[in-house]
Design a protein around this nucleic acid. Structure first.
Lengths: 193, 193
DNA sequence: TGATAAACGGAGGCGCCCTCCGTATATTCT
DNA sequence: AGAATATACGGAGGGCGCCTCCGTTTATCA
């Protein structure tokens, strides 16, 4: 009968939801620029929100971290859906999506290490992100396979692995520019010949 | 002419040297217990020294870290020399030395990560420690090879690699006790049959 | 035994962490 | 619409760690 479990509850306040969004965005910026140990007060300032509000939404630094990460993954998934919905030509769509992924994580060099710690800590988070990423890639390459522009012997997991490799290489040498070039080569290789 | 480079300088003050020692020891304790981000003020307190003194000796956290690490490596080298000097029976000497190494690093679980960062940053530090460690092992196994109690087809680098493997495994599971057992097996395998 | 270079120590200013609670506001009820 | 109330907001404040600066102490040198 009750729409949720247990007693009937009020719906969440609109300002609360807005602030949560603002905090996630600010955290992505601040952690991206200043590394994983950047000040939480800086995040609150950037979000234009009191420090108390930050702590109410994310009681620990780790929770904020994890939420930021989930959010980025969700954004990429939404982008994949959008590219499919707008019927962008499959190869172009795949290329755009991968570029966006690299760019999204490129700004977060300091976060990568912390992310690894986080994913090691939470298996749930790991499978969550794995599913979302391979899901995104899957829906993009399926279309290409169907219309005959992409090879059909490469799975989403393979593409994901390649992506991870390129994230890494970018962190060590060359930076985003080199990574983006690598990706063009890689995507070209995915074409059906 | 001048004993050192350039102008004739006073010899360093005795209290300065003493404090440096005290700080290294305290830092090993505090970082060992509380992880790499433990408070530097706690280190100074533990050493019974003002915070200013700590900063004069080690202007940055990284420098303190590096010095602690060098110091531990030096201690192990000195132990190897001592074991040789006292003509301890070769297999026993090797076993004791390796046990000491494991115990020394066992207390420093939090430091391991930071050490990796440090060694990645400074190639010099890496080769320094590599040389000291393989040097120690080398002088210990040479004696065993010479008197015929140890096989002659295993180099110091091989032993060092095995050691690193055991450090790692201990960090993940079992703890020091398991590591020490592994070592006994390993050393036994080094005997000439 | 001075003279003095060198080292000591800790106060102080700053920023960050996190909690607590008085104030503000969105939602619900009538 | 207006009142009632559950929720969320903001930021002051106490505590701690970082790091610098400089008056005081002490070891070395002549």
């Amino acid at each position: 009968m009750a729409s949720e479990s247990g007693k009937a509850r009020r719906k969440p306040r609109a300002d609360s939801l807005r602030n949560r969004e603002k905090l996630l965005e600010a955290a992505a910026t601040v952690f991206g620029a200043g590394g994983a140990q950047a000040s939480l007060e800086a995040v609150a300032r950037e979000a234009g929100v009191g420090i108390g509000t930050l702590y109410r939404h994310f009681p620990t630094r780790e929770e904020l971290f994890e939420a930021v990460y989930r959010n980025e993954v969700d954004i990429l998934y939404a982008l994949a859906e959008e590219l499919v919905r707008e019927e962008v030509e499959p190869v172009t769509a795949l290329q755009r999506w991968i570029h966006a992924s690299v760019r999204l994580f490129a700004t977060k060099s300091g976060m990568i290490g912390a992310l690894q710690l986080a994913t090691q800590a939470s298996a749930e988070l790991k499978t969550y992100s794995m599913d979302k990423m391979t899901g995104s890639i899957g829906m993009l390459i399926d279309r290409g396979v169907r219309d005959g522009t992409l090879r059909d012997d490469i799975g989403p997991e393979d593409v994901f692995r390649a992506l991870v490799g390129i994230y890494y290489s970018q962190n060590q040498t060359g930076g985003p520019a080199a990574a983006l070039r690598l990706i063009d080569v890689f995507v070209d290789g995915l074409r059906k010949r």
